[in-house]
């Protein structure tokens, strides 16, 4: 891993068009600004990893039992409240 020391207000450039700027350092919190082109999504790592894991556990062919349950749930949810 490349390690660089930066002060508040200083930046690093990644590739031709991504700039990460240290905006503020206060105690153990560092505020970063990220400037990246359209199409580059920037995520907090832990959120992205959790989303990947959630998608992996969601993917798969539903069993016939699950499809049956879902279709009943859909009918129930769609029924206007009495």
């Amino acid at each position: 891993m490349l390690v660089l020391t930066r002060r508040a207000g200083e930046s690093v450039v990644i590739g031709p068009d991504i700039v990460v700027t240290v905006l503020e350092v206060r105690g153990d919190l560092v505020r970063l600004g990220v400037r990246a082109p359209r199409g580059i999504q920037v995520h907090r790592e832990e959120v992205f990893l959790e989303l990947q894991a959630a998608n992996r556990s969601a993917a798969g062919e539903p069993s016939s039992e699950a499809l049956d349950w879902l279709s009943k749930l859909g009918t129930k949810a769609n029924r206007p409240p009495s």
């Binding site: 989303l51 998608n55 993917a59 499809l67 879902l70 279709s71 859909g74 009918t75 769609n78």
Partner: peptide, 23 residues
């Protein structure tokens, strides 16, 4: 999608009688 970077094209097939069920 996150976790599936090579999955680009998807179709939607309703579960149950029609798409009114929302699933």
């Amino acid at each position: 999608l996150p976790g599936f970077p090579d999955a680009h094209r998807f179709t939607l097939v309703p579960i149950g009688a029609d798409s009114d069920g929302g699933l």
